[in-house]
């Protein structure tokens, strides 16, 4: 599906995208955005699920279980923490804008 130069194109275009979308972020948003990016790579849960789904031996199943467990914590924890940060951010703005 993703092979050779196509893989390279996807990588480079996604890298440019990542660079562009945050190139004008104000300093006050540095930490919430870091937290949001942390949540976004919680997408690793998808890969962990794939890996566990085709694990056969007990060793593979154990590793796959750990992968899904850690990835679920990344995704859920990343969301909860970011949401709390942004809520605080919103209230500290106090509708002054």
């Amino acid at each position: 599906m993703i092979e050779g130069f196509v893989a390279l194109y996807i990588f480079i275009l996604a890298a440019f995208t990542g660079y562009e979308i945050i190139s004008r972020v104000p300093e006050t948003l540095h930490t919430p955005l870091m937290s949001g990016a942390n949540f976004a790579h919680g997408i690793v849960v998808v890969g962990a699920m794939v890996a566990l789904s085709h694990a056969h031996t007990p060793a593979e199943q154990a590793l796959g279980f750990v992968a899904v467990l850690l990835a679920a914590m990344n995704a859920v924890g990343g969301y909860v923490v970011t949401e709390r940060m942004l809520r605080m951010f919103k209230s500290s703005q106090g509708g002054g804008e």
């Binding site: 993703i2 893989a7 996807i10 990588f11 996604a14 890298a15 440019f16 995208t17 990542g18 660079y19 979308i21 945050i22 190139s23 972020v25 540095h30 955005l33 870091m34 990016a37 976004a40 790579h41 997408i43 690793v44």
Partner: peptide, 14 residues
């Protein structure tokens, strides 16, 4: 691939 790369680049710039 896409989400990871976007976060990798955005995170590096950040």
């Amino acid at each position: 691939v896409i989400a990871g790369t976007v976060v990798g680049a955005a995170g590096t710039l950040l």
